[in-house]
């Protein structure tokens, strides 16, 4: 009976159903229209009415010369960079710990590590604000020279980041053949040699994917930095927020477009590395 059906008409060929395809296209349009409009308007000549006046690169030039906006972008990128390093190293260590050892209270420990993933961001943001304000770190840090004064917001995005890295790296470690580690130690390698020559190369795709995840997450972070950033350490999303509240300027679109491109490149690389055929399962 099934042989008589034309391809695409079988009862289980849902992928060929017209209405399903229509829903899919409609959702894609809904998801991408705002983003494409934002990118298109970054090339528009500035005007109040929000209509298309003509192609220009002036908004990019304006964004480039807006020193507040550029320093906010630079702050965001450097914070993301610093927290990525911390999050990747710490996350990888936690992943190896949970993968390798059995210890009392492990379930509770894993639960505590998952907490930053599930807690609403706004709770984290206000808790961080309190923490910095009460311990005096907020005022202390802002008097330091440039890269160090970013210290106030930078541990905070890292805090919710490293458990994510741990999850990614751990899922990679699940496929590891423990006998490789034993063989290495049998052949006289030290704990450190085994770690650097056997385990790290194996974890590498997970580490890169985890690092890119941490990078995008901390670049994406608005809520926590919104509460913790001082006047000196405004990050890009916080700056955009204040610009959005005062009116529409297409230089915001230009700067956003740059950030979107950075994010998409990082994400696509991460997804390629995580694709199942490359993960070695």
């Amino acid at each position: 009976m099934a042989a008589l059906l034309k391809p695409g008409q079988g009862p289980l060929d849902y992928g060929k159903r017209r209405w399903l395809r229509a829903v899919f296209v409609a959702v894609l349009v809904m998801l991408y229209t705002p983003i494409l409009v934002l990118i298109a308007y970054s090339f528009n000549i500035q005007n109040r009415g929000g209509i298309w006046k003509g192609f220009t690169l002036e908004n990019y030039a304006k964004a480039w010369h807006n020193s507040d906006l550029m320093s906010a972008l630079l702050n965001s990128l450097s914070i993301a960079f610093i927290s990525t390093i911390f999050a990747t190293v710490i996350g990888a260590m936690v992943a190896v710990l949970l993968w390798r050892f059995r210890f009392p209270g492990k379930a509770a420990y894993e639960g505590a590590m998952a907490l930053p993933i599930v807690i609403p961001e706004i709770c984290m943001g206000v808790a961080m604000l309190l923490f910095y304000a009460r311990t005096g770190m907020m005022t202390g840090m802002t008097h330091l020279p440039w890269p160090l004064n970013l210290g106030t917001p930078s541990p905070s995005p890292t805090s919710p980041c490293f458990p994510f890295v741990a999850v990614v790296v751990r899922s990679r470690l699940v496929g590891f053949n423990r006998q490789l580690e034993e063989a290495s130690k049998d052949l006289g390698a030290s704990e450190w040699q085994t770690f650097t020559r056997i385990l790290i190369p194996y974890m590498m795709p997970g580490l890169v994917a985890g690092a890119l995840l941490a990078f995008t997450l901390s670049l994406d972070d608005f809520v926590i930095t919104f509460f913790t950033s001082g006047p000196e350490t405004v990050t890009f999303p916080v700056k955009i927020y204040s610009m959005v509240k005062t009116g529409v300027k297409y230089e915001v679109n230009a700067a956003s477009t740059i950030l979107i491109v950075i994010t998409i490149v990082a994400t696509v690389i991460a997804m390629k590395l995580q694709a199942p055929d490359k993960a070695g399962h």
Binding site: Y32, P34, I240
Partner: peptide, 30 residues
């Protein structure tokens, strides 16, 4: 590819996406 198309916007900054949405939904928006 299809999965990536759906998930990709999620990686773009929340504030930028909300700002983009404002431009579409405004009274004189798209």
């Amino acid at each position: 590819l299809l999965l990536m198309l759906i998930v990709l916007p999620f990686w773009i900054n929340l504030l930028i996406r909300t700002y983009a949405l404002m431009a579409v939904l405004r009274d004189n928006g798209l």
